[in-house]
Amino acid sequence: MDSFGHDHSHDHPHQSDDKIHAYYQILGQALKELLIEKGIVSASEIQYAMERREATTPANGAKVVARAWLDSEYRKRLFMDANSAAAEFGIELPTTHLVALENTPKIHNVVVCTLCSCYPRDLLGLPPAWYKSKAYRSRVVCEPREVLKEFGTLLPDDVEVRVHDSTADLRYLVVPMRPDDTDDLGEDALRSLITRDTMIGVALAGRTI
């Protein structure tokens, strides 16, 4: 299996990342206990927020992308104001500025956050472990084609690879290209082709998945 195609943790090569995660886990637990002790939030409020967060999945993003594949007016709205376009599906992003990035036959977009792990969580859920790994964050900015190749994504030289480093307050959603052979598919079937990785930009949408 390639070096990024997994979500589970193991002893190597992400050992240093695992150590860091363990450290922050303890820090997070201590912070949580203090906040509860001081009466700033209750345990049930934290539980509710976590459950709501974990219930968000890439299906949200897939709804948006599938509609953009089918409806050219929606597509225009999505690239003009992604927050409003997401809200049409009841996906509210009160504190996030969402931007949709259009993959075309000439431009392939891929998203990273080199400084931490910024990610459009309201559309894609929690980021996969590899997205937060130092390996992905440090490599995709300087050798994106190598990294994409490891995901099985080979792009010809005449396609511009455009990396987006989410360094500030905006969050990016890649809108993959609709596969050619999908004219017979309805909206639900199209949604199933739009995976998390296609919306991060490390994979292409296709029928053979």
């Binding site: 987006h164 480093d165 360094t167």
Partner: peptide
Amino acid sequence: YKGSTADTIDLD
């Protein structure tokens, strides 16, 4: 850099 001279990276 190994890749096309047209490849870019955007930052905010």
